[in-house]
């Protein structure tokens, strides 16, 4: 028994190793959720901090990546930050503009509209079309039923369709 747990400890990656390997992916997903570099960095970093606090549990999970994804999605949706981070601090540098995505992003058809979806719908879209998760996996990530995932996705797609639809009409009139 003791031997087994020691073996386990040796095989499991340390938090640092894991974090370094997970960071790029975590950051990319965070950006799709949060929409700006600063918020993405915050979100990904908070996720790592939370993972570090519960590393015993996370490292023993079958899929640490799924565990982190779940933490991050929940952090994003609840929008709650640790108390110490919620105060605003004066800085020397102005914040990056909200709409300041690269010119390339502005030319995309749907991505600009993804940003205007409510957090839960946006999360479902990102999990489904970027992370390529199944409805069941999304339901586990969001801690809800698959029915709920289906209806949320449906509403999100409907909103996106309406958004590009109205855009197309504007184009016709112009």
């Amino acid at each position: 028994m003791v031997v087994a747990s020691q073996r386990h400890a040796q095989d499991a990656p340390t938090f640092e190793e894991y974090a370094a390997s997970a960071w790029p992916r975590l950051y990319r997903t965070a950006y799709l959720l949060a929409g700006s570099h600063a918020d993405a960095e915050d979100l990904a970093q908070q996720t790592l901090v939370q993972a570090f606090r519960t590393w015993d549990k996370v490292s023993r999970a079958d899929h640490p990546a799924a565990y982190l994804r779940r933490m991050m999605t929940n952090l994003y949706i609840s929008g709650r930050r640790p108390k110490s981070r919620r105060f605003e601090l004066l800085t020397d540098t102005p914040p990056e503009p909200r709409t300041g995505g690269s010119g390339h992003e502005d030319r995309l058809e749907l991505w600009p509209h993804v940003a205007s979806l409510p957090p839960r719908q946006r999360a479902v879209i990102v999990l489904r079309y970027y992370e390529q998760l199944s409805e069941r996996e999304i339901a586990e990530t969001l801690d809800c039923s698959t029915g709920n995932v289906k209806s949320t996705a449906h509403r999100a797609l409907k909103a996106l369709r309406a958004a590009i639809g109205s855009h197309a009409h504007e184009g016709e009139e112009a």
């Binding site: 960071w23 790029p24 950051y27 990319r28 997903t29 950006y31 799709l32 570099h37 960095e41 690269s102 390339h104 992003e105 995309l108 058809e109 749907l110 991505w111 993804v114 879209i125 990102v126 079309y129 970027y130 390529q132 797609l157 996106l160 369709r161």
Partner: peptide
């Protein structure tokens, strides 16, 4: 539309300069 979504999300994510 679902294909476009998937393509665009990957495009945005892949183009990111990860800090």
């Amino acid at each position: 539309m679902e294909e476009t979504l998937s393509r665009e999300l990957h495009e945005v994510a892949d183009r990111l300069a990860v800090p």
